Every structure is written in C-alpha cells, then in structure tokens.
Amino acid sequence: MRPVVVVSIAAALLVGLSGCGEHKAKREYAVPRSLCGIPVDSETLAPFLPGGRKLSVKQTMSSMSGTSCQVRVDNHFPVQTSLWWTNQPNTAGYVGLQNNSKLDHRADGGRFLYSGWEAFGETRNCTSKKLLGARLFTAFQMETSDHQDADAMKRLITEYTNAVEKTDTCKYGKPFQK
C-alpha cells in the first residue's frame, strides 16, 4: 500500500511542477534597434517583449501635435512610444494628461518620471514656433508586458529622449505631418 501512495504523491508533484515549468513562447523575431526611426537599446527592451513569430512596427499620427510608434508581436501590442508637442510646463504636467499613470520614480530633477512599465520625459531645447512655443515630450509604455523593471524604463526613456533631441523634429520644431 505504501508504494502506491508514494507513486501517487510523486505523480501529483510532477503534474504540479510541470505547470510551474511552463516556458514562454520562443522569440522568433529580432528585437529592434530602433522604433520608428528613433534608436533604442535592444538589450534593455528585449525582456519586455513576448515570445512570438513576427514583430512589426507602425507609426501613427494622432495630430500635428503627436505621433505614436506601436510595436506588435503576433496578436500582442507590448510597446508604444510617443512624441507630443504640448504647452505643459514640465513632465509632471504632461503626465497629468495621461490616464492611469502611477509613476513612483523620478530622475534629473523631474525631467523623467517612470515606473516599472512606463516612462515619460521632457526634451531639452525642443520647441515649436509653429505650435505657439509648444515643447516636445516623450513616452515609452509597455502595454501588455508582465515584465516590470524601473531601472530599465529609466534607461529606455533617457536614451530615447536624448535620441529624439537629435532629430529634425526637435531641431526645427516641426509639427508632425499626417
């Protein structure tokens, strides 16, 4: 009778452990080094991306004031970056326009606000005369990722914002074109 109990317990443990040992879907695509023309650190971005077969990146224009870059992996939208011209005085004002943002970290005197899954930044010296002196702000949001890492989000938003500052959009204050 004891061997049956031991075998039953061992079988139950194996079934239970096999559920815990589920592995993520294999990543069959290359992690991008840029999103809609803006360089990103692919090693820092990779843990936020799900496994899957195909990755695509699409830029969408919301208006002359804003543009988004959406990353799609198969049927998931794990990442979105955004650039917005706004007359907000600082990053906190810009973030106040966002829904459900719970940012518990700040860097560079509040220029960057971030959490484990989203980050917002303010560019330096990027203003648009055509948009009445609006300033350019950035966002990097993980839409469907279970992974959270505040340090990685800080690196992503800082590097992304610095790269945006080198674009013609920043240098010449160009509104976005549909």
Rank of each mutant, 00 (worst) to 15 (best):
C69G: 11
Q70L: 07
G96P: 04
Y172C: 03
G116K: 01
K26I: 13
Y29W: 03
L45P: 03
D108R: 10
F176A: 13
D151E: 13
S42E: 14
I38L: 00
T91P: 00
L97S: 04
T144L: 04
C20I: 14
E43M: 09
V31R: 08
K58N: 15
Q70T: 14
N100E: 09
L17F: 05
G52R: 02
S82W: 07
V15C: 07
E22R: 05
L13V: 15
A11V: 15
G133S: 11
T86L: 08
A119Q: 00
Q59Y: 02
S63V: 03
G133Y: 10
H76W: 08
G37L: 02
Q98S: 11
G66T: 14
T86A: 10
C126G: 10
M1Y: 13
A139C: 09
M153R: 10
A46G: 03
V73Y: 01
P3M: 06
V79W: 01
R135P: 00
H23Q: 11
S62L: 12
D168V: 10
T60F: 07
L97K: 08
F77E: 12
Q88L: 10
L13T: 15
Q59E: 15
K130Y: 04
V164F: 08
T60N: 06
S128M: 07
L17Y: 07
I38R: 07
E143S: 09
R2M: 12
A10P: 13
C170Q: 08
A10G: 14
Q80I: 09
A152Y: 03
T138N: 08
E165L: 02
G19K: 04
H147M: 06
